[in-house]
Design a protein around this nucleic acid. Structure first.
Lengths: 194, 194
DNA sequence: CATAGGTTTGTTAGTATTCACTAACTAAAT
DNA sequence: ATTTAGTTAGTGAATACTAACAAACCTATG
């Protein structure tokens, strides 16, 4: 990964802000430039194209998520608590960085380019990779139902989480996702418990 | 509801086809006109704006879904079988009408206009309205877990279904959603069973 | 029945706006 | 002196949409 300049960081932050506030349609070079208080051409001093801005943003998220979830691996807890920790971590992050909710849980971005598409799917896989051992262990140790395959359980878990994010965004981020999100996760845990 | 002309129906079908094949970015008046084999301006003889085309498409879906799911109401079966019937119906429909997968399970469209946003949320509510009595009855009669509230169960069910649709679309609709979808629904039923 | 007149549905040829992106220049920092 | 990071002023392409016109079709009347 190349070094990221301060200006580049500022730009991807502004891009994220625009994404959050006005969606993919609002993410234009013109808007980025206005928000940065300089001209459109100046943006191109820091990125070769608009696509590169989005790609760098997604790269940030993937690295960040991998580190965050990786840090929870060593936890000495039972699978249900591990799951809770993972989602608490995720919810805290998305709560602070709403732009990634739009970036990842929206498919409008995916249509823009094949590389963006790939990177978004890669982020989903990061999440699955961290979820799998926890759910698998949970089934083996009898915490979660083993009536269905591990993959099916993960599908249900991720589906519920994504719908949370969808609703939150559709409501304009106007409630505390950490609170209602954790309630939903606890409900989910009860349902998948053995 | 106003009467829909034959040409209007043709146009919303073409719009759906474009949506399926090339996403929201491909849904342009130019593309619609080319597909219809006439000029761009001719499109405006049948609709006042592009937005109206999408709105009529969504209106069709809402009515259709309401009728389809309403027809299942009178079924004399237990809640689990009712749920299976609902999702079999949904899967068969979306399997035949992929354009609505893009329209409803994508938020790119929602950003385009407030009216479209409202209509998509209304479609979700149609689904919830038909799901609620079934899940509620299922909990009362002891088929589904009552460890969590009915709304939470519905959230989990819809979340799993939406993720199915998302994955199917992301893979370019290149497998039989009826088959894998029903497998997933059966797994879901096992998980939410009491 | 024939035809004049209006409506419907198409055409061509535009409009204004927005988009991502570029060329040429400039000032300042290194 | 050269590199960096900004400027102004544009490009061409795509967008939704419109004005003016024309042919076909329906319909009411002489």
């Amino acid at each position: 990964m190349e070094k990221i300049t301060e200006r580049q960081k500022e730009i991807i932050d502004v891009a994220g802000k625009l994404l959050t506030e006005s969606g993919i349609g609002g993410l234009t070079i013109k808007n980025i430039a206005r928000e940065m208080q300089f001209s459109e051409s100046a943006v191109y001093r820091h990125f070769q194209s608009k696509e590169e801005i989005v790609l760098l943003m997604l790269e940030y998220l993937a690295l960040n998520m991998n580190e965050r979830l990786g840090g929870l691996k060593t936890m000495e807890k039972d699978p249900p608590e591990k799951l809770l920790a993972i989602f608490e971590n995720q919810l805290r992050f998305f709560s602070k960085n709403k732009q990634y909710v739009v970036a990842v849980f929206s498919d409008g971005l995916m249509e823009q380019s094949e590389s963006i598409n790939e990177r978004i799917l890669a982020i989903m896989q990061v999440k699955m990779r961290h979820l799998f051992p926890v759910v698998f262990e949970g089934q083996k140790k009898g915490f979660f139902t083993d009536e269905v395959k591990c993959e099916e359980l993960i599908h249900i878990i991720i589906g519920a989480f994504r719908l949370q994010m969808f609703k939150w965004r559709a409501m304009g981020f106007d409630y505390d996702i950490k609170k209602s999100g954790m309630e939903s996760v606890r409900a989910l845990l009860k349902v998948i418990a053995k």
